[in-house]
Structures are given as C-alpha cells and as structure tokens.
C-alpha cells in the first residue's frame, strides 16, 4: 500500500518535472511545476514530515508559484530568440549531458546509495509532532546557519531594491505643491551692475 503510493507519487513528480522543461508554453511549465511540488509534498507526508509538506504547499504552491504565474503572464516573452542557436549548441550540450548522466549512473547506483545503506526511518507514534522536532533542531543545532541564511535573504532584499530603485533617483519629477508656493524671490535675482560701455566703441 505505502509502496504503491510512493511509486505513484514519484511517477507524478518525474512526469511533471520532465514536462516543466519540455512544454512550449511557459504558463503550462509553471503549472506543471505546481504539480511537481504537490507530488513532493505527498512524498514528505509519507515520511511523516507534515510541517515540510504543508510549508511546501503553502509557501511554494500558494505564494511563490502564484507570483511566478503573474510574472510569466505579464512578461511578453518572445520564444523565438530563446530557441535561437538551439541546434548549434545541441551537440555540445548533449555530449556534456550524456557524460554527466553516464558518470552519475555509474556512481549513484546501489553500491553507495542503495537501500542497504539507508534504512527506512522509524515509525513515530500518533502524538509525534514533526513541527516540534524541526523547531528544536533549527533553534539549537542549526541556530547559527539559520541566522546566516536569514542574512542571505536580507542581502537579496538589499540587492533587489538597490538594483531596481537606482534608475528612479535620476528621474526629474514635477512637484505641484512646491510649484504653487514658489515666490518671485526664489526664481529671479535682481543684480545691480554699473553700466558698461563695450570696449573699443569710443575709439572710432
């Protein structure tokens, strides 16, 4: 029963992942990514990691992917230039992919990563809370990395704002509230100068 669910979900995830990178329409790609996330959430549930499963659905499917959909639908992506040079780079790309796949197939087999090396996790009692366990780890053992990860997000925010805000500072805008309050003294400066004859005029 559990094995059946696992294989079904795994098949769904793999299918969706392949579709993400092969479908032509970017909106469809995003929707397939949502499907892949939902399948992964199911896999988390099988591992009794409820918090991760719910976080994946809420954060990724609920928030990130919706934003993604907005972006993809708003941007008018012209697909033709993206596919330019596809045939030209295909041999090199295929060679690299093939080499990598064969190395991985050779190394990532059951010898190092088989079921014998990875026993199934112990079943937890019904009152076991995945959230508590996660929180306990995160705020003790992983406290320092957790904080550093938060700083990385801060840097991402600073960088995003600095890179997008920059252009706006140079734009000259009208300020109507200052325009109507302007007085003559602000704009016109009367300078009294002694009258001057242009040089060389008197000589003639």
């Amino acid at each position: 029963m559990e094995l059946g669910i696992f294989y079904t979900l795994a098949a769904v995830v793999l299918f969706a992942a392949v579709m993400v990178i092969t479908v032509r329409n970017p909106v469809h790609a995003v929707l397939f990514l949502v499907l892949a996330f939902l399948g992964s959430a199911g896999l988390w549930l099988l591992l009794e990691a409820e918090f991760l499963a719910i976080a994946l659905v809420l954060v990724y499917v609920g928030a990130v992917m919706v934003l993604f959909l907005f972006v993809v639908m708003m941007l008018d992506i012209n697909l033709v230039p993206l596919r330019e040079g596809f045939a030209r780079y295909l041999p090199a790309g295929a060679a690299v992919a093939l080499a990598l796949a064969s190395v991985m197939g050779f190394l990532l087999g059951p010898r190092y990563f088989g079921l014998a090396q990875f026993p199934a996790p112990r079943r937890m009692p019904a009152d076991y809370s995945n959230t508590t366990a996660l929180g306990r780890l995160l705020y003790t053992y992983y406290l320092y990395p957790f904080e550093v990860a938060a700083v990385i997000l801060l840097v991402a925010i600073i960088a995003a704002i600095a890179l997008t805000q920059r252009a706006r500072r140079r734009i000259k805008t009208e300020r109507p509230e200052r325009q109507i309050h302007v007085r003559r003294q602000d704009r016109v400066r009367l300078v009294s100068m002694p009258a001057e004859k242009p040089a060389g005029e008197g000589g003639a």
């Binding site: 990395p145 550093v148 990860a149 700083v151 990385i152 840097v155 991402a156 600073i158 960088a159 600095a162 890179l163």
Partner: peptide, 13 residues
C-alpha cells in the same frame, strides 16, 4: 556553503 553564498551574492550585487 552559506558563507560562500553570502559573500558571493553581495559581490554580484
């Protein structure tokens, strides 16, 4: 990894 990413991300920006 985290230290490297923190440093690199700031440098990219």
């Amino acid at each position: 990894y985290l230290g490297l990413e923190l440093m690199s991300l700031s440098l990219y920006a």
